[in-house]
Design a protein around this nucleic acid. Structure first.
Lengths: 243, 243
DNA sequence: CGCCTACTTGAGTCGAGTCAAGAACCGTGG
DNA sequence: CCACGGTTCTTGACTCGACTCAAGTAGGCG
């Protein structure tokens, strides 16, 4: 608050307009910033580990993370990918049930849960927003559940591409070209497939002309309608379906 | 409130000690009851439909429901089974993204969302509880996501049996015997399998002596350790894993 | 330059889906 | 009470999609 607004990194932060931060206008964002610890992560580093005490909450400010769970036999399931502006911090128990791994160099703001709760009184909208985010997460995971349980590999990949394009729109900007921050292995672990199946599915889509892949991570959607048909018409990001 | 407490159905309701209702002590439960509409459902009836306007919330008071989503091609994915005491009402948008179907004759209390929100001021614990329920739901669905994405059919079934036994403990009481309210088809649609695969898996477990099935819905767990090993050591209900 | 990891592609296997038939169970109505 | 039609459940035979195993290529980084 005493800090001159111009000095705050918030003003140039990609998460400035995220559900969490946008509760505070430019005049008051310092209240939130003053309580934050900025975490900088290298690719592959963990923001938090499952089984770890969960008394912090996070807001991704740059980069990309995977929320994942690892089984003793090495099987991995990725629950979500988080990009700039995405909130991380839902836990009903004393510890996390997922780990958060950086897919590329990333930064996130970290708060003590108690510090945020203390702000609820003066900023009731904050509590409302966090609740809304949690509800939104439930629906996103239900979408994923539907895809994992009921779609075949080609449909899963098609859905993933459309969904990811939509999620990255605010990063990549306009029409049809985007850069995926995750490896094929990550995609496989997100969709309940193996690397080989993912790779084959990409090749198929490429051969059919539905997509174009330049440098392995650059994807261009060339036939959105075909992908949508393949995916079974799930409208990415909204939880709604046609048909 | 004015109603003499003895007259309230709440006192003999199986959901009396649910997260929602237990916010109110016996003296004040009438406040909640006065605003409730009691919904009675026959087996197969819908409490709510996806795409329907979502401005109500529900608390299951008896019976069992399935939260499901239906695709245009007939594919169904069940997101959760709800029993007495379970809250239904998480939605971030204007309408539901799932339907709630009664698996057997069931009852639920229905409130207008606005009526409940109006109680938040005097009963802050209510808001807290609903938030906690939502967080708990996220973790339950993540468990399911992990199972759908990374477990084979036998492991899915073993996990389902242990999980369901734990969920029904407050109904079935003690050790190892419980009555499943859902059909094999429902189980298949919950685990991302087909009826035939579910049926075969049950038969296998029966032949191995891990379980005993009396009248098709009565299941007795005979070798919990073997089931746990098969399921991959997920501790049902807690979101934790051994290994 | 060389190592390591990620990616791709092929060949073969296996688990789960599909198709099909029969048995058991349900509620309904005679 | 029993006969009947419809659904659910089980089991078998077959098929096919995704996994496994394996080899080779490409790209990133020290």
């Amino acid at each position: 608050m005493q800090t001159p607004p111009e000095a705050l990194p918030c003003f140039s932060c990609k998460a400035r307009h995220s559900p969490l931060c946008s509760v505070f206008d430019d005049e008051h964002i310092g209240i939130l910033f003053a309580r934050a610890r900025i975490r900088t992560l290298k690719a592959g580093a963990y923001l938090l580990h499952e089984e770890e005490r969960a008394r912090q909450i996070y807001n991704t400010s740059s980069g990309a993370l995977a929320l994942e769970r690892l089984a003793s036999d090495g099987a991995r399931q990725i629950m979500a990918f988080c990009y700039a502006g995405d909130f991380i911090g839902i836990s009903s128990g004393p510890s996390w049930t997922v780990s958060a791994r950086a897919l590329k160099p990333s930064t996130a703001c970290q708060w003590q849960e108690a510090d945020i709760h203390a702000l609820y009184r003066d900023w009731p909208k904050l509590e409302e927003r966090i609740h809304a985010i949690t509800s939104r997460v439930v629906e996103a995971i239900m979408d994923q559940l539907f895809v994992l349980g009921r779609k075949k590999a080609p449909a899963k990949i098609a859905w993933f591409l459309l969904f990811t394009e939509a999620r990255l729109q605010h990063v990549s900007g306009t029409g049809g070209v985007f850069t995926m921050p995750m490896t094929r292995i990550d995609i496989a672990d997100y969709l309940g497939l193996t690397v080989e199946t993912v790779s084959r599915a990409f090749s198929d889509l490429r051969r059919k002309g539905y997509i174009r892949i330049t440098d392995k991570w650059q994807v261009e959607i060339r036939d959105r309608a075909a992908l949508a048909a393949l995916s079974g018409y799930i409208q990415p990001g909204t939880g709604r379906r046609k048909g």
